[in-house]
């Protein structure tokens, strides 16, 4: 009796599965192992398929990126003043300087505060750490890693148009 092989599945030591090769008889243990792998794979695919829309859902929706084009009345921006508008979802500062209109992405490259226009010194000042930029966007003082990013701007008869 002891010489007859035990039916598979009753006493397989863990970690040593391949004990019955070359059998044509369906082997429930191997069958279960195969199906378990299928289940694992399909479950993984299902998980990814379920997570994908959730991730996409919390991404900023297309419209939230903001207008690609902002128009300002010239009359509302007299010489020497500035205005900050949202352009492409970012605060953008428009200044009517003595040399004409300028527009910059108002986010300071240092730590993300929003710069202000200072008419007296003809410069853009970051209120957080004393950063200072010239009308050309270049760094003139403070711990600033780089210049401000210029924003495309055009002027028509009575409007300032930010963006293309």
């Amino acid at each position: 009796m002891s010489s007859t092989p035990k039916p598979p599945g009753t006493d397989v030591p863990p970690g040593k599965p391949r004990k019955s090769p070359g059998k044509t008889r369906p082997d429930p243990v191997r069958r279960r192992r195969f199906l378990r792998k299928c289940l694992g794979a399909l479950g993984g695919v299902g998980f990814l398929m379920a997570v994908y829309p959730l991730i996409r859902y919390i991404e900023p929706p297309p419209e939230a990126e903001g207008a690609n084009r902002v128009e300002i009345d010239k009359a509302s921006l007299p010489p020497g003043t500035s205005r900050t508008v949202i352009y492409r979802g970012r605060p953008t500062i428009v200044v009517n300087t003595s040399d004409g209109y300028i527009a910059y992405n108002a986010v300071c490259p240092h730590l993300g505060c929003v710069v202000k226009w200072e008419g007296g010194t003809q410069s853009l000042i970051c209120p957080c750490h004393g950063g200072k930029f010239g009308t050309d966007g270049s760094v003139q003082g403070g711990p600033i890693p780089g210049p401000l990013t210029a924003v495309e701007l055009s002027v028509s008869d009575d409007k300032i148009i930010i963006g293309a």
Partner: peptide, 13 residues
Amino acid sequence: RYIMEQVRFGWLM
């Protein structure tokens, strides 16, 4: 409406 029309997969949610 915004969820159903603008948000990605908002309709599904």
